[in-house]
Design a protein around this nucleic acid. Structure first.
Length: 832
RNA sequence: GCGAGAGUGGCGGAAUUGGCAGACGCGCCAGACUUAGGAUCUGGUCCCGCAAGGGGUGGGGGUUCGAGUCCCCCCUUUCGCACCA
């Protein structure tokens, strides 16, 4: 009987349609397991990266079912987003239609792949019953000052025709459009106050020991906490002072200038009434224009002297005030002190403009000479030329100088973050309307909760022309003020779609819950997510926003959860010819084609086999055939024996009269159980688990003629269980053919017998001077002396050792004997 | 520049604590079965050598009875951050 994967998969797809046994319900008597894979954007069809992500999650979910866990394994759709709108512009199809069609198609793909999702938990973020809760959460955040509106310089992607958050700018370009430099625009925007949780986001990482270090490092870096001090320099001849931020207060005696960002608000005032001031201002504006925005490339440092001076509050020295392109307004105080001797940037700047260099930290290796320095000395050290602080270490000086600044009132200790508040306004149609109304009389008025959801209107002309299409939707735009009933306008920007994905995992436990975004009781049972699985590309974007939302939702009193996911796993990318698969590169491998040709089992299993899950996977069109061949081998072996196994009991474990060949197969079987079981505990190197199953099958083929029926039954049944997380269709089919009726998910995961798994006779390696010389087969648990004796009796060893003096013998019981003799004289090399 | 990771046959990869380097698969070679084989089964496949033997995990050094694994230096490469004061 040949392996008809199509017939088998179609049969079980039908049987598994609308299955009710996967509906997750809280149960007090069972340990729970919430396994979640990042939901997809419904772009049209699944790609291999999806198949990989979801095959990892499904293997885990199936294993947890078999281990007796109450499993929550949901799936949904990140259904708002720009591609739907682009499709509308290009093909004239409505974004909703496009999205709905795609979800339907991709759901069929999911069903075809045989994943164990509880589809009763399905959610789509473009559904009013979902996005109303985005609006609800927004209003709560508004109440708490966690959402606010301000005019600011924002990142603008000319391709997307919308604003981007800082997190969505990669190398100065849009995260969706690699070649499109982001522009800066001044706009009124809504923000979420992520900075309010900066410290908790940082400290919370202590709880994330089971997140990849790589992700934590990226988040730490992104939050960018730095502890320093703010110091005020009085402007000579004016009442104003300039505040600078520094982490190296210990070097302040070496300051030779104060440098402002070109956007610094004080500049105009400083130039007022100065001769040539207008000219200088014009040059500064020019400098701004020339600055690469945002600073993607390190540009040549350029500066302009303002003609004014400021006083260093520590030593009373007057230093020139400059404006330079390398000082960022967005960070710290928008102004710095320039210490060329101890900061590389300041050093370069001073070289170019011939500013003096003053050494105030001494290098213990050799004395620094300001005139001969070629780079800045940035290490901590001992202070010199620093008044009363001279002689202190940098660490002591930092503390003392900050304390003195506070006491004397010209500065204080200050903490700054790289993390910025999250700009969430998007000038696009296909997203959640921001539930705010602008009234000429009452100002900005939140939409009352009872009027939620603010529905996204369906009949809107989508043009992609740079302002929200909702501006043109008169029905939507014009409304009445909830306070005064006067005429008013709605906010027409929509929310960043990352808002949707920041809390969807809280919705899964009860996605139809109508009282609040989260069903607190259900969440209390299921949370935290025991295992979250997704791509590394979300290390900062989605995963930092999610952590922020988790804390906000907690502080709203809806949950007690501090962190969303106890464990995070980031799988590697699927590559073809060394590059990520993409339409533009033309190197796509379509999962549908693979499923059509080899079946879902093979496709799933191959993505698990080709590389360990955390590493990138290089797709190989030939390789997948090897998995198909393996499954066909399993099927063929089973087919040859199933009919004769009727009524045959599984092998009685430990039975004395089983043959040596039986024992060999059982040993391999139990070693395989041990290996795969161990691996599911967290290592997840499914590639080696599948290799172990292949070894078992190879052993079965080799021993086929000599093993007894009970052992065949035992081995087949157990093997099918071990195989089922990776190849569920074939496994369920064979399980049924073996005479069972229950679903494999409800069958207990096999346990191994350590006695059976143990090798009876061991092969011990014999080395001489660390080099392999022979192998001996011995009984287990020989004493060290016995082992040594057997090793020395080995003819090959005896031959080499014969007349040498044995200096030492190292014995690792059951493993190895290493005999150390004096190094043999090498025969003189024959030269030609 | 800073931070994290990686470098093993023709290819993907294995080697859980320092203890047989190359499991498993692809590819390739040979044989069997066959009208046929891009099916299936069996055997072989790190390099040099007929063999005995020798060499071998990016390069160099070190620790150790013993190093792919630990330490130091260097090279290559992937990813993240990048004028963050």
């Amino acid at each position: 009987m040949s392996f008809d994967h199509k017939a088998i998969e179609e049969k079980w797809q039908k049987a598994w349609l609308d299955r009710t046994d996967l509906v997750a319900v809280p149960r007090a008597d069972q340990p729970k397991y919430y396994v979640l894979e990042m939901y997809p954007y419904p772009s049209g069809r699944l790609h291999m990266g999806h198949v990989r992500n979801y095959s990892i999650g499904d293997a885990l979910a199936r294993h947890k079912y078999m281990r007796g866990f109450n499993v929550l394994h949901p799936m949904g759709w990140d259904a708002y987003g720009l591609p739907a709108e682009n499709a509308a512009i290009k093909h004239g199809i409505h974004p909703r239609q496009w999205t709905v069609d795609n979800m339907a198609y991709m759901k069929r793909q999911f069903l075809r792949l045989g994943f164990t999702y509880d589809w009763t938990k399905e959610l789509a973020t473009c559904d009013p019953e979902y996005y109303r809760w985005n609006q609800w959460l927004f209003l709560k955040m508004l109440e708490r000052g966690l959402a606010y509106r301000k005019r600011s310089r924002v990142n603008w992607c000319p391709s997307c025709q919308t604003v981007l958050a800082n997190e969505q700018v990669v190398d100065g370009c849009c995260w969706r459009h690699e070649g499109t430099p982001v522009e800066q625009k001044e706009l009124e925007q809504w923000f979420f106050r992520t900075t309010a949780y900066a410290d908790e986001l940082l400290e919370g990482m202590d709880q994330l020991g089971n997140w990849p270090e790589r992700v934590l490092a990226m988040q730490r870096n992104w939050i960018g906490k730095s502890i320093g001090a703010q110091i005020q320099f009085r402007v000579v001849g004016l009442e104003d002072s300039i505040t600078i931020f520094t982490t190296r207060l210990d070097t302040i005696y070496g300051a030779t200038a104060v440098v402002l960002s070109p956007e610094h608000p004080l500049i105009e005032k400083l130039l007022q009434g100065m001769a040539g001031g207008a000219n200088i201002l014009a040059r500064i504006r020019q400098l701004q224009g020339r600055r690469p925005v945002p600073a993607a490339v390190q540009a040549e440092k350029e500066g302009i002297f303002l003609g004014r001076f400021a006083t260093n509050p520590y030593n009373g020295e007057q230093v020139p005030i400059w404006v330079a392109n390398f000082v960022l307004m967005e960070y710290g105080a928008g102004a710095v002190m320039s210490v060329p001797a101890h900061d590389q940037r300041d050093f370069e700047f001073s070289q170019k403009y011939r500013l003096p260099i003053k050494v105030v930290i001494q290098n213990p290796q050799h004395d620094l000479n300001a005139r001969r320095m070629e780079t800045a000395y940035t290490e901590y050290g001992v202070l010199v030329n620093s008044g009363t602080y001279s002689g202190l270490s940098s660490e002591d000086a930092l503390r003392k100088m900050a304390a003195d600044a506070t006491q004397k009132g010209f500065g204080k200790t200050e903490i700054t973050y790289r993390l910025k508040d999250w700009g969430i306004s998007r000038q696009r149609y296909w997203g959640t309307p921001i539930p705010v109304i602008y009234c000429a009389k009452c100002g900005t008025v939140p939409v009352p909760y009872e009027q939620l959801p603010v529905l996204l209107p369906e009949n809107v002309q989508i043009t992609g022309l740079g302002h929200s299409p909702l501006r043109e939707a008169a029905q939507f735009l014009h409304t009445t003020c909830p306070r005064c009933n006067g005429p008013a306008e709605r906010e027409t920007d929509t929310m960043d779609t990352f808002v949707d994905s920041s809390w969807y995992f809280f919705r899964y436990p009860n996605p139809r819950y109508a009282e609040s975004p989260v069903d607190s009781a259900a969440v209390k049972y299921w949370f935290p997510i025991d295992q979250y699985i997704g791509g590394i590309e979300h290390a900062i974007l989605h995963l930092i926003y999610s952590r922020f939302f988790t804390k906000v939702i907690r502080d709203l009193g809806l949950t007690e959860t501090d962190e969303p996911a106890a464990r995070l796993f980031t799988q590697g990318m699927v590559l073809k010819d060394g590059a990520a698969m993409s339409k533009s590169k033309g190197n796509l491998v379509d999962p549908d084609d693979m499923i059509e040709k080899y079946g879902a089992d093979t496709t799933r299993m191959y993505v698990l086999f080709a590389a360990p899950p955390e590493k990138d996977l290089e797709w190989n069109d030939e390789g997948i055939g090897g998995i198909y061949k393996f499954l066909a081998r399993v099927y063929r072996f089973a087919s040859r024996h199933i009919s004769e196994l009727k009524g045959v009991p599984p092998a009685p474990i430990g039975s004395a009269e089983i043959s040596a060949e039986d024992r060999k197969v059982l040993r391999k079987l139990h070693q395989t159980i041990r290996r795969i079981t161990f691996d599911f505990e967290g290592r997840w190197h499914f590639n080696t688990d599948i290799a172990a199953l292949m070894e078992l099958v190879n052993q079965l083929y080799a021993s086929e003629e000599q093993i007894s029926k009970p052992v065949v039954r035992e081995t087949l049944e157990t093997m099918v269980k071990l195989l089922s997380p990776f190849a569920p269709y074939l496994s369920q089919e064979l399980w049924t053919q073996l005479g069972h009726s229950e679903d494999l998910l409800r069958v207990a995961w096999p346990s191994y017998d350590p006695v059976l798994a143990k090798e009876e006779e061991l092969e011990v390696v014999v080395q001489i001077n660390g080099r392999l010389r022979s192998k001996i087969r011995v009984r287990e648990d020989l004493t060290q002396d016995e082992l040594k004796e057997v090793a020395l009796a080995d003819p090959r060893i005896a031959h080499i050792v014969s007349e040498q003096e044995i200096l030492k013998t190292i014995i690792v019981p059951n493993k190895l004997v290493n005999i150390v003799i004096s190094e043999q004289r090498k025969p003189a090399p024959t030269r030609i």
